[in-house]
């Protein structure tokens, strides 16, 4: 005790380190769920940070536009061409409108799909990223006020993003499929009998295995959710990068690149 009295600063630092260790352990033991204080901090921060993020995004977009004028002109031309193509395509599609209406009527008859077209969804903007693990955990600007709840599924235009791990008024924390705690049941688009489970590797890919070892999964296979577990059926997960046979586990092990655009992630859709 005498040492602590004579070295008050060192004792204070050791004490704070010890407290932070305890806090970290507690946070991990509760799987990162926030305390009352954490929720308060999150709420206040999201209110203050949101306008700053929006302003910064606006400025960033402006400068991006200024510096890539030629590129935008080229893209503009490409889009004009694409519009012409789509208008021609639209004419063809109008012919099959009647057939489409029949199919929609048939579709509504099946009432087992929780996230059918027209299901409630809300769009959110990414407002905060975790510095150490970008795109594994991030915060969006919609929360309980919009009906978002824990475990709501989050997607972008390209595929599955993840699920809501925590939510409050005006914010929701999303744990992406890149997190190792997110197990997703999949099947291949090419062959529905190829099924398995993938997990995030905590960095930028997903890893997993195929349930039936004999199934011929190949590089380039697209994977979608099966509907088993949390995620509804039919959402694109990613594309198979590598397929290897693991002698120890006696199963085919795969790595998958997510189809969702994590690096350009700005807006997401949350299924309610």
């Amino acid at each position: 005790m005498g040492w602590f009295k004579t070295h008050k600063r060192a004792a204070a630092v050791i004490g704070v380190c010890f407290l932070l260790c305890l806090l970290t352990t507690f946070s991990y033991s509760t799987a990162g769920s926030s305390t009352l204080v954490g929720r308060g901090v999150q709420k206040v921060t999201s209110v203050i940070a949101k306008p700053i993020t929006q302003a910064a995004t606006g400025i960033s977009n402006f400068f991006t536009g200024v510096f890539s004028y030629d590129e935008l002109q080229k893209e503009n031309q490409e889009l004009r061409d694409r519009v012409d193509e789509l208008e021609a395509e639209n004419l063809d599609l109008q012919l099959t409108q009647q057939e489409l209406e029949e199919l929609q009527g048939l579709y509504k008859a099946f009432d087992f799909e929780p996230y059918r077209a027209g299901a409630n969804a809300v769009a959110g903007r990414v407002i905060e990223l975790d510095l150490s693990k970008p795109y594994v955990v991030f915060t969006i600007d919609v929360g309980t006020e919009a009906g978002v709840a824990k475990d709501c599924v989050v997607v972008d235009g390209n595929g599955l993003i993840g699920k809501v791990s925590e939510t409050g008024k005006g914010w929701s924390k999303v744990v992406s499929v890149l997190s190792d705690g997110n197990s997703i049941s999949f099947r291949a688009v090419r062959d529905k009998t190829i099924t398995g489970v993938v997990n995030g590797d905590g960095e930028s890919h997903l890893e997993g295995y195929v349930i039936e070892e004999k199934m011929r999964i190949i590089k380039g296979d697209q994977l979608i959710t099966t509907g088993v577990g949390l995620y509804p059926e039919g959402i694109l997960i990613g594309t198979v990068d590598t397929v290897e046979y693991d002698d120890d586990r006696q199963m085919k092990v795969i790595t998958v690149s997510p189809t969702a655009d994590f690096e350009g992630l700005q807006k997401v859709v949350v299924f309610l």
């Binding site: 970290t24 926030s34 905060e128 150490s132 991030f138 915060t139 924390k173 744990v175």
Partner: peptide
């Protein structure tokens, strides 16, 4: 608390 998955390591 605001942005990371776990509180404390940072």
């Amino acid at each position: 608390m605001a942005a990371a998955q776990y509180t404390g390591p940072g």
